[in-house]
Amino acid sequence: MIDALAYAVVALAGVAVIWGIVTAIANRPPGKAQLLYAAALEIVTVVQSILAAAKIIGGFRPVELATTIGYLIGIVILIPIAWFWANVERNRFSGIVLAVAALAVLAMTLRLLMLWTPAA
């Protein structure tokens, strides 16, 4: 994990959460900009997982290795599935679906930061 990148993911995901809630309150489905933003969040998340995987392959051993690997894999599948699920039926709830996925990405990144301590 790279701390700066992780905090960037947290910030980007936080904006995605708020954006989703805002369009839901406005009773609109997510627009093109919002969907592209979700895609950008996904790309940054994937980069983060790849870099973390590279560090593990390079010899870094977090305390809970299996859990960390599970998080690194799980975190990248959330946005694509939510994207699909949000677009099947486009209405105000699509924004909430994206917000829920982004919140999960945010929470999982914070958890990854905690997990990223070297094994003694």
């Binding site: 099947v88 039926e89 829920v100 999960a104």
Partner: peptide
């Protein structure tokens, strides 16, 4: 699986 149900399914999925 419609309306607010899509959000419920999303949370259950996570």
């Amino acid at each position: 699986n419609s309306g607010a149900g899509r959000v419920l399914v999303a949370v259950y999925g996570i």
